[in-house]
Design a protein around this nucleic acid. Structure first.
Lengths: 110, 110
DNA sequence: AATCTTAGTTACATAAAGTAAGTGATAAAG
DNA sequence: CTTTATCACTTACTTTATGTAACTAAGATT
């Protein structure tokens, strides 16, 4: 009985996307460079601890770039690299799948 | 300071995709109806316990369908619904992103 | 009766994520 | 100058999610 074998590049991409918060962070950065606290506030329930981990991972993957502005207090901005920006068509696909197939639960009346 | 607000459908889609194993299971099912053990074997490190949870979730989302064939021993097959098949273009996008941007680590020489 | 199959479930152990308090550098306020 | 404030994180601790391995149920085979 043989195993289906995934293309390793594809598998890597899936792993990036399937990791909790990663896709949301990348999506959030599509709107431009942002600081730590801004990203944190824009994603409810994402803790600073995990955000910090994810930003490091994404930087290591070359998907985002970390820029330090030695002002006072220091300003640090995260932005997508070309590799990160290249996710755009993918988000578009997710979006059109969602529009066609996701049913929203009825808004509860108060 | 206002928060960026995700479209709830889009967010739902992201949540489905970002949940560990979900995307891989759906991708695996793109090749046709499959039984529990087959899916389990095709995805290394996925435990039967989590597979069982995910299949229930995906069925509840209407992304897969569970068919029971009362043979002996019973045969149960999982297959994508139209909603699940509609992920195909998304996988294609992931794939083309991966081909363009994912660098493979050099194969270690023995 | 003991054994085999499939499709799971259960109990327990480990890993990942959430929470809240703390750090270090700098500056402005009292 | 000592306290307070800001930002970008860490650290210690708790809760949740996942992995592992053994077990169950129902019918067929030996």
């Amino acid at each position: 009985m043989e195993q289906s074998q995934l293309c390793p590049r594809f598998e890597k991409a899936l792993e990036i996307l399937s990791k909790r918060w990663t896709a949301k962070i990348v999506y959030q950065l599509q709107s431009g460079p942002q600081r730590f606290v801004w990203i944190e506030n824009s994603l409810p329930n994402l803790s600073g601890k995990v955000l910090s981990e994810r930003l490091k991972e994404l930087e290591a993957e070359g998907i985002i770039q970390r820029d330090v502005y030695p002002e006072t207090p220091v300003r640090i901005e995260y932005q997508l690299t070309d590799k990160g920006k290249a996710f755009a068509p993918l988000f578009k696909e997710i979006s059109s799948w969602a529009e066609q197939w996701v049913e929203l639960p009825p808004t509860p009346e108060e």
